[in-house]
Design a protein around this nucleic acid. Structure first.
Length: 872
RNA sequence: GCCCCCGUGGCGGAAUUGGUAGACGCGCUCGACUCAAAAUCGAGUUCCGCAAGGAGUGCCGGUUCGACUCCGGCCGGGGGCACCA
């Protein structure tokens, strides 16, 4: 029997056995209950990094644990293979994005296999396979036909470095989320998915996701952003020339009853509106109670009225142009001055026909939220206050926190707190929130407005001016307009013969691919050269993993048997976008009758990052950890940070696996840090894990040498058995709760107990139990030990041990004895001892007597099996 | 600016519904084995104190027989959103 476990030899051997036996294939035969464990699939960027390892180890432990508990486990792996890095690599290294991607996949697959993950590799696919994205194109057309896809000319975020359009959520602090370039505004025709149609349902659904982190639910809630308030009409006191009684914004109420869609979902306003005349427009407010504090109205520079007015007004046109060129960075926005242009028009206060307010075009009013127009109440809104101060508009307090402050003037800060209404005519004396209801009721009764809900969520723009993505299955015909590619012609295969010499989308310049016949009229058409946002690819891959027929995206019945994913594990950076899009996509499929699943992910876990110390030389150059060690001259140890190529503090898992074996790496990934928190990589840590792997091996090897015959018969070390059974219960509960660090601690505790325990049949049995409990975490070692102990078959197929409830209950308990809440003594009492007995034992304690010093206790509190507190 | 989370030894972190704070690991100290080292094993390790004892979960206060846990107010760190009316 080898004195040491040798992973270099054992790891590969067991990996091969698992592969040959198909141990981890999900059968789907219905013989066992199903469990679907999924980690967010990786982008094939080159090599596996340690963060991937942590992510997949967590899922793997759960998958193996579920298998041992009798589940038919689906634990697949694939590749989120489209995206910009491949194109960047193509431009920098003159390789084809497809070749680069596929070669990375081969490398990373081999690396993942070194870690012995219990993955069903038969279901592997990459999103850049035509056999995947072809089905995605079909689903896109399904949504198109169902009216959930539309095309719109819209101002988009243009990334001048990546030469592409970014979704709002891909713009971070006004910069492209990948390139970091300052984003510009451009108008392009884009495809949009109507995620806003599902806003309410996506929000309400969050309340039922009780196995999601609160943090993620909150982030999505804020992102969806429901606001309730009043939408009402301002009439112009002097209608614009040529007025025929048309109102701007009134067409929105035709879209739906009490809610209306974002203006962004509508066609660009007809510029001829100006000629048609305008006599009113709508505004939205969450604070209708402050309506008597109004001192101006303002519209967005993009508002149709602003556009119409600008046609005959050069100064206004110049003002609007100025607004549009302003930067969009956070810093600029924060310091950006509130700017306005007085149109000279006045609007009539809805509750007083004799009261008019000036109408401004203001730079801080957003066209794509609410109605693109507001009323300004400076006393109770900071932006309005800044604006009013700048343009000398009146500031009237209408909410007072107390009666004494009713006439208190507003200083530099708007009052946004609670209070009662003042200076508000018929509203005076009402609490502000009652005023909201009162004004909405009155507006509805009088017909000038209605209570409504407005969403912060915008529709999802999915067009990308990029080559390496799923082609949008549409052709543009000169006479028919955009036409869907017939199903029989799918997939629209991305051409591989392209040229990357110039930036932008090489599809645009492709000589033949762009030419297509029009399915409608048979004439010539041009293929859509935009590709889909890669978030579309990742919005349904988990369905394809569950079921992958050749002729359809998925088989409905089979997909419904696996879904929803029982446990989804990934980085918190996907808390909003990916998870929201996947939830939307699943609901959209449900609406069009393709799949009856509401929520795609029942359980969600967001794991922390792996961090590492950073090092710099005297010149401030970043050093790798290895360089730092051998560097001549001073080295500064910097902060512990997220691993990144720029800081050069990454750790390549492969050499570590070569040195310590897969199990030590897996164990380290699970140890110490709670999985939702960051884990600091350290050499000492991996060495500690290596030692533990060897400790378990030693226990098993010793046992094997003694021979199994010695442990037949009843156990004789009840104390040890209690510890074993407590460990069984604790490890299982902690794995199910994904509290891997605690499960690790449980296993250390059991190992410590076993090493100290004298040999006995109980101990022999306990060693086998320890191996089973550790198997999901250190599977190669466990298989090796299983064989050494003479067991048949694979431990991967073995059962998880069952905790005997009788052994989980202690016979004796330690009782804390306190005086006035301070611990003075402990005593041992039989489990379930009576209050009277415990009180008597506590009062008999010398230490208690000494503290009491002859005083009789005033009161004695007894918590059975826990403590006695003597109050003196 | 708004919203949310977190502050426990030298370090990572444990601690059911309020009930013995510091499990477990790392590191460190001492000892054993060894010519020596590595590996391994044993003992110890919140702080002050020789001890008895005292203090202690960011700070201040409160509720309670009893607070890491609940409440209020500060201080510090982290995350999300970005002029959302």
């Amino acid at each position: 029997m080898a004195a040491r476990f040798n992973p270099l030899e054992a790891d590969a051997r067991w990996q091969q056995v698992w592969e040959e036996q198909g141990t981890f294939h999900a059968s789907g035969d219905g013989a066992r209950p199903r469990a679907y464990i999924l980690e967010m699939f990786p982008y094939p960027s080159g090599r596996i990094h340690i963060g991937h390892v942590r992510n997949y180890v967590m899922g793997d432990v759960l998958a193996r644990y579920k298998r041992m508990n009798g589940f038919d486990v689906l634990h697949p792996m694939g590749w989120d293979a489209f995206g910009m890095p491949a194109e960047n690599a193509a431009m920098e290294k003159k390789v084809h994005p497809g070749d680069w991607t596929r070669s990375n996949i081969d490398t990373m697959r081999a690396q993942l296999k070194l870690l012995g993950f219990a993955i069903d590799w038969t279901r592997e696919f990459a999103t850049c396979d035509p056999s995947y994205y072809g089905h995605e194109q079909a689903l896109f057309l399904d949504l198109y036909e169902a009216g959930l896809v539309y095309r719109k000319q819209s101002e988009v975020n243009w990334d001048p470095v990546d030469m592409t359009v970014l979704a709002n959520e891909q713009v971070i602090d006004g910069r492209g989320w990948r390139s970091g370039a300052l984003v510009e505004r451009r108008k392009l025709s884009q495809w949009f998915l109507k995620i806003t149609d599902f806003a309410e349902d996506l929000l309400d659904g969050l309340g039922r996701l009780d196995q999601w982190p609160d943090k993620v639910r909150l982030m999505q809630e804020n992102w969806i952003g429901r606001s309730r308030g009043l939408r009402f009409t301002f009439r112009l006191d002097t209608p614009l020339p040529g007025s025929e009684g048309l109102g701007v914004g009134s067409e929105r109420s035709e879209l739906s009853d009490s809610e209306f869609r974002q203006p962004s979902a509508e066609p660009t306003p007809d510029p001829s509106l100006a000629g048609r005349g305008i006599e009113s427009f709508e505004v939205f407010t969450t604070r209708p109670d402050t309506i008597f504090g109004a001192s101006f109205a303002a519209i967005s520079p993009d508002h149709p009225i602003a556009t119409a007015l600008a046609e005959g007004n050069e100064a206004l046109a110049a003002f609007i142009a100025e607004c549009k060129q302003g930067g969009t960075t956070a810093a600029e926005l924060e310091t950006a001055e509130k700017k306005g242009f007085d149109t000279g028009i006045r609007v009539i206060h809805p509750l007083d026909p004799d009261w008019t307010l000036p109408l401004y075009v203001a730079n801080f009013v957003l066209m794509d939220y609410g109605t693109g127009a507001i009323f300004g109440c400076p006393a109770h809104d900071q932006r309005d206050l800044d604006f009013a101060r700048k343009y000398g508009l009146s500031v009237t307090r209408v909410v007072a926190p107390s009666p004494e402050e009713a006439e208190e003037p507003i200083g530099d800060e708007a009052y946004t707190g609670p209070g009662r209404l003042v200076n508000s005519r018929f509203l005076d004396g009402l609490a502000a929130e009652d005023g909201v209801r009162e004004v909405i009721a009155r507006a509805e009764a009088e017909g000038w407005g209605e209570g409504t809900t407005v969403w912060r969520l915008r529709d999802w723009g999915v067009s990308r001016q990029r080559y390496w993505g799923t082609p949008i299955p549409i052709v543009h015909c000169e006479s028919c307009g955009p036409v869907a590619v017939p199903r029989g012609e799918l997939p629209v295969v991305l051409p591989e013969d392209i040229d990357f010499e110039t930036p932008g989308n090489p599809l645009d310049r492709h000589p033949t691919w762009t030419r297509a016949g029009c399915p409608g009229c048979g004439g010539t058409a041009r293929r859509e050269t935009d590709t889909l946002d890669t978030f579309v690819d990742s919005s349904w891959y988990f369905i394809r993993f569950a079921s992958q027929p050749a002729d359809a995206p998925f088989d409905r019945a089979e997909a419904e048997r696996w879904l929803p994913v029982d446990q989804y594990i990934g980085g918190v950076e996907h808390a909003i976008l990916h998870l929201l899009y996947a939830r939307f996509w699943t609901r959209a499929l449900q609406r069009i009758g393709k799949l009856d699943v509401e929520e795609p992910f029942r359980g969600l876990f967001t794991q922390g990052m792996v961090t590492h110390a950073t090092f710099q030389d005297a010149a401030g150059r970043w050093l790798t950890p290895d360089e730092a060690e051998s560097h001549e001259g001073p080295v500064t140890r910097g902060r512990v940070e997220k691993m990144s190529k720029s800081k050069r503090n990454t750790v390549d898992p492969e050499p570590i696996v070569d040195q310590y074996g897969a199990d030590a790496v897996r164990w380290f990934m699970l140890s110490d840090s709670p999985p939702e928190r960051d884990l600091e990589w350290s050499e000492a840590g991996i060495q500690g894990s290596w030692r533990f792997v060897q400790r378990i091996w030693r226990l098993a090897a010793e046992e094997a040498e003694r021979g199994s015959s010695t442990w037949l018969g009843d156990g004789d070390d009840v104390g040890l058995e209690r510890k074993v059974h407590r460990a069984i219960a604790a490890v299982g509960a902690n794995i199910e709760a994904l509290a891997f660090n605690k499960a690790v601690a449980n296993l250390y505790e059991l190992t410590n107990a076993l090493e100290k325990a004298p040999t006995s049949p109980s101990r022999s049995k306990a060693v086998e139990t320890l191996i089973r409990l550790a198997a999901p975490m250190v599977p190669h070692l466990a298989e090796e030990a299983w064989v050494a102990l003479g067991r048949e078959g694979l431990i991967a197929d073995a059962d998880w041990p069952t905790a005997d409830p009788a052994l989980l209950v202690e016979e004796e308990v330690t009782i804390a004895v306190q005086v006035n809440g301070k611990l003075r003594d402990t005593l041992t009492a039989p489990k379930g001892a009576s209050r009277e007995m415990l009180e008597e034992m506590a009062l008999a304690s010398d230490k208690v007597a000494r503290v009491l010093d002859g005083q009789p206790p005033r009161k004695v509190i007894v918590v059975p099996d826990r403590l006695v507190n003597v109050v003196a």
